[in-house]
Design a binder for these strands. Structure first.
Lengths: 131, 131
DNA sequence: ATGGGGGTTCCAGTCGGTGGAAGGTCAAGG
DNA sequence: CCTTGACCTTCCACCGACTGGAACCCCCAT
């Protein structure tokens, strides 16, 4: 299988697949003409990677998960720990974003939004403010 | 004022201040010895930038906001529009993260997390899965 | 004069790709 | 047999927004 087919099947762009090879996540064989020759197992790995990335796992987490995925004698506890850690990271990001959002929403609600220059948003960002 | 004092007063690291000069957000004068010479207005700008960045505004948004901040004849509507757009971006990010979080939480809840190898998390990421 | 704590420039690296140039390969159609 | 066009290859540069570090300069106190 050539890279284009794999990209179509796995949903991971060709460019990204080459990048994943660069960083050692997949190791496709090579045909005589120099083309990468993918097996079904590579497609499975790439599908796996695409989904893991969509869940926000870092590349290094993906590398670890892929190792566990391939390891028939893994302990599910290891996988669960990584996933739980990822949930914590996401929760932290959400909390940060929510704080930003609330602050912004409050500022926006106090801004007239007309053609006059006075603006609580800019005032809060400036030296007197306390955002 | 030297860069270190400004960093302390504005809360923006020296390195970042130099970077902001590089990309044209601040334009400090220079002393005879080649050191950057900041005025109070530069400190105000950098404080402004620090706060705007903390609210998640992109550098380009910051540039626009800084322009409006400096423009006495601005219309608050312009500022409000940028802030509202930013809120929308944040909302979209939160929604994405929440989807990830929910999916992960569901997978984690179904994973035994013991020393056995069977793991719904890995199964969902693999070729049979449907994350 | 020496030491330490500023400052300066410039280059490289972060993360996870993405875009594009220059060139090789292959199957189909004229 | 040749050309066209779609694929593939490598390599290098760029995105955002910094951050780390090397190598060097400057100024003040001891």
């Amino acid at each position: 299988m050539n890279i284009g087919d794999v990209a179509a099947k796995s949903g991971v762009p060709s460019k990204t697949i080459r990048y994943y090879e660069d960083i050692g996540l997949v190791k496709p064989a090579r045909s005589a003409n120099g083309y990468r020759a993918f097996r079904d197992s590579d497609v499975h790995k790439l599908t796996f990677l695409g989904r893991a990335r969509a869940l926000g796992f870092s590349i290094e987490d993906c590398r670890a998960l892929l190792g566990l995925y391939e390891d028939e004698s893994r302990a599910s506890a290891e996988v669960k720990a990584i996933a739980q850690h990822q949930i914590e990271q996401i929760d932290r990001k959400i909390a940060d974003l929510r704080r930003m959002r609330d602050t912004l929403a409050e500022l926006v609600s106090r801004c007239a939004g007309d053609d006059r220059p006075d603006c609580p948003i800019l005032e809060s960002l400036g030296p007197g403010g306390k955002v």
